[in-house]
Design a protein around this nucleic acid. Structure first.
Lengths: 220, 220
DNA sequence: GGCCTTCGGTGACCTCGTCACCGAAGGCCG
DNA sequence: CGGCCTTCGGTGACGAGGTCACCGAAGGCC
């Protein structure tokens, strides 16, 4: 915590010194273990999070126990959407889970409010984050409604796979990513394997032919 | 325009006089005809809209010409989501259409920015609108992904039908409401008609048994 | 009345989700 | 080590929903 975390946050780069001073003075840096619930239905958070390291998965849990991944917060992004609920005193139905060890700056509600009031750049930063997330949600709705599942699965595999090309995840988790069912994902992955595009083993998917997957993912 | 429109806007009721003075002084009231595009991909709006009368339909247009209705802005609500894009200088893929004649207060970007800076209540108002809309979008995603179409159709019919129970709309429009296909809606409406729940004629759906539709809509 | 556009109905077929099972893989513990 | 339990994935059958191709009916417009 001794170092200046505001220097590591690209979006704050160009901000007036006063903003960064306020952030440094009035916020703290927290580390969350992988798997920790960052926010959720039963949790009354009081901080805006700026994610410095790691990723946070935001997912919606349905009443019948089904779940769907809505989006991810990556390092360098803020969690404004969920914070709006806190600022507005609204309860929240979705939850955020740290997928890896995550390091985040926690900005107390009052400090956030002050920054929004005093800094035009900070306002711009906040509204830009909103705008992008909303556009992303719109795109997600369109994809779920209209895009074929094999295409979406190929996209998701490419999006989630690390450099090595070995994705450690279960078919059930992939189904939750896409709002689909486990059996359907199993069958579709089986088809991909038959074509030599992936290799399957328990708990992992190895991408064997990224180009072929990308070609499918790019079909209009 | 001579009257004080801020008095008609419930959310502004409790605000400090200064806020309402600013709104009155720096904004104008515009009337839009039914069918007018309020905002859209090719349109660079410069105003935040507070809708005083009428409704605005927000829909996403896909590249292949398909469309899906995302949500509606009703009288008494603001259009913050789309405004975020303007404030953040982001381009916008969705469009807003006035469904009826619509009367809206137009707040210039600079005035909106000032209000967010100076009034804590106005900030709360803005963030609350965001939070609600986002929660609604999350719920929409869940419904599209998991809810049966007959249930969603029954819900939509009840939501859209006026007091008389006669809905003037085409099957294709209903399909766009639900992100489905025209043929599927036709078949489903045919089934509802066979059960005596609706009566169909060209360009209209008459709700004959609201209770039955509500019962279906309420199935978990 | 003739023409054109929009609207809705239909059958065939494909994709996707659901249900019911079952076996295989891996962890745990005696 | 063997036995047990949980998680994971594979499968067949079927139902719901989307797509394609086509066609006739309704209404608007000369």
């Amino acid at each position: 915590m001794g170092e200046d975390w505001t220097a590591r946050f690209a979006a704050l780069e160009g901000m007036a010194p006063g903003v960064r001073d306020t952030l440094r003075a009035r916020s703290s840096v927290a580390t969350l273990p992988a798997g920790a619930q960052v926010f959720g239905p039963g949790r009354k958070a009081e901080n805006l999070l700026l994610l410095l390291e790691g990723t946070v998965r935001v997912q919606q849990l349905s009443a019948e126990g089904r779940e769907i991944v809505l989006y991810r917060i990556h390092a360098g992004e803020s969690c404004v959407l969920t914070t709006a609920c806190l600022l507005a005193d609204e309860s929240y139905s979705a939850e955020g889970i740290a997928e890896t060890r995550a390091v985040a700056a926690m900005i107390p509600r009052a400090a956030f409010d002050d920054l929004v009031a005093t800094s035009p750049e900070f306002r711009q930063f906040v509204f830009q984050a909103y705008a992008r997330r909303i556009a992303e949600l719109f795109a997600t709705i369109e994809e779920i409604a209209f895009r074929r599942l094999d295409i979406r699965l190929a996209q998701k595999l490419l999006e989630l796979a690390p450099a090595g090309g070995v994705l450690r995840t279960t078919h059930a988790q992939l189904a939750a990513e896409l709002g689909s069912a486990r059996e359907v994902i199993s069958r579709q992955l089986g088809e991909f394997q038959r074509r030599g595009w992936v290799e399957l083993s328990r708990g992992e998917v190895r991408l064997a032919d990224r180009a072929a997957l990308a070609a499918l993912a790019a079909t209009p």
